[in-house]
Amino acid sequence: MPDDVPSADNADTLSLLLAASGRGDENAFAELYALTSPKLFAILLRIMKTREWAEDALQDCYLRIWQNAERYTPERGAPMAWLATIARYRALDLLRARRPDSEPAGTEPVDEDFDDNDHAPAHDQTPEDYAAEAEGLARLDDCMRELPAEQRGIVLLAYYQGCTHSEIAARTRTPMGTVKSWLRRGLLRLRDCLGGA
């Protein structure tokens, strides 16, 4: 297995907390929640747009995490990456269930500039907090930046807005075939750049 997600003290801590949560240790789970929920909430709110929805989704996520903590293995990536994945899938599920009659999103502009302030840590966040992901993130950022703008735009629209092909086509007023082919080319390029799978 390629060990491409760096481990850091932070990741070790989260691994321990996850393992303890899997054994039913409620204190560990509370600590896990305290340490990780702001990151998952940021992801959920970004995708779901509505605070109440994002909060509901966050509860769902941690209920799953509580019930499935023992299933975490390092193969799934750093603990934070695994948690982020759970959150994002949950957001996608809920978006799908709520479409199309209650589309929450305004057509928010996609990050045209990848160096926008999303990347800036929050004020109360120290660089060390990001240590667990820093290396992987830097590489991902580099590779994203190397994508042609239209390919990058679609990947970001898909990730941050939870859009399917047809939604991307509608939002960007681009033919479906073009959307698919840009996305495919973007993803293959991303995979090559990330040295992957």
């Binding site: 990151k39 799934r76 991902l140 990330l194 992957g196």
Partner: peptide, 18 residues
């Protein structure tokens, strides 16, 4: 593999306490 990569996009967002 892809999940781990895409997780990076989510984790670059500024944390926000619920």
């Amino acid at each position: 593999w892809w999940e781990r990569r895409f997780a990076g996009l989510g984790l670059r967002l500024a944390p926000l306490p619920p």
